[in-house]
Amino acid sequence: MTIQRDLSKYDEQVLKDAERWTEIDGDLDGVDPSVAAAILTSRCETIRYDHPRTERWHDPEDVDVVADIPYLPDGGYDATVGQVRGHLLDIYLPHEAAVRMSNVTPVYVDIHGGGFCYGYKELNRNFNTHLAQQGFAVVSLNYRPAPQTDLKGQLADVQAALRWLKAHLADYPVDPNAVFITGDSAGGALALLTLAIENSGRAAEAFGIGQASGIGFKGGALVCGVYGLASPERAAGRGVAYGTERKNLESTLGSGFFVGLDAADPDFLTAPDIVANVDLPPLFLLTSADDFIQAETLALATALARKGADFELHDWKPARHDSLGHVFPVCMTWREESLRTLADIRRFSYDRC
């Protein structure tokens, strides 16, 4: 079945430009028409926000890039099957690390956001290069967006990329014992769930992961993440209005995106439950007062505080007549608040290497 694609109200050149960092409608044939239409609208409306910011995106001169490395065989181009864009990754290195060729540079694994259906690693390139400028090797992962796969499939993609990384860390001038993870928005959810999988055999089993990568994350920096993914009926009575974000996401992605999660719901799909059931590494949490899902980060911080865990909460308050909004350090790296956040991530992480 081919969906009716009405893109006439969107600027054709803007959509063409956006193909650099996201799928638009090339993966929607054969998808339930209502889901396909919702995903297409979500992607196009998000492009409207991201496109004007591209004028400020740039790579610092002192960062080296190794792009489009396949972490699964189908990530490499094959004339018969083509290429699965979701199975590629990039590596960003401070040039000094490449020159020094010593295994002392900490590593950040970055998982981009986009409501689980929008974006590829190129969406976060500007953030990744500026994070690398802070003295990190940054490994930026693709994963297959919905509707190409569901939540379990995305977590499986992340695990495949981590297994590749663990096998190849020695090929790069990095410290294999100082690996951190970061993610923003939906990527923040995937990063937190990945930490749960890496630190709990029960969580790994619940998400269908036979064996976690064992990469040994030293900590994480979670930016404006969505952490309450439990179903409303399973999360009932937990004292927080969980289920709202799940219903919002299902309205775009369809209920099929959350199939096969009964064993994880709710023990690994709400912030308090994850914290209660998993000993997480140190976490740097970031949100802002005008982040539309600020409450998600605050709930995670509250759970960590009650457990006595090692974390920092950075809850930015924008100045009067100003706005920071959602994932501001990722989409607006040039702002003073973003530059300070990057420096804070460096301090937090280097202190825990």
Rank of each mutant, 00 (worst) to 15 (best):
Q133P: 09
H51A: 14
K9N: 12
A36R: 09
V139I: 06
G188N: 03
V158E: 03
A206G: 14
L285K: 03
E233S: 04
V179C: 03
D171T: 01
H321A: 13
V63Y: 03
S213N: 00
L155I: 11
D64C: 02
R5W: 06
G114S: 07
D59A: 15
V327P: 03
G239H: 12
V65T: 09
S42D: 14
F180M: 01
A167H: 05
I274P: 00
C117W: 08
V14M: 14
A137S: 12
T41C: 08
D279S: 15
Y10R: 02
L193F: 13
V179L: 02
V278S: 02
T252D: 03
W21H: 10
S185I: 05
D265L: 14
C117G: 09
A276R: 15
E61A: 15
Q148H: 06
R346I: 06
G113V: 00
D59S: 13
K317G: 03
R5T: 14
L222V: 04
S213Y: 09
P145G: 11
L300M: 07
R234D: 11
V107M: 11
R5V: 15
V240S: 14
A319D: 10
R320D: 14
V81N: 15
D310N: 09
F180A: 01
Y49D: 11
I111N: 01
F257H: 05
I197K: 07
R335M: 08
A38K: 11
G208S: 11
A98S: 09
L7A: 05
T105D: 00
D25H: 08
V179H: 02
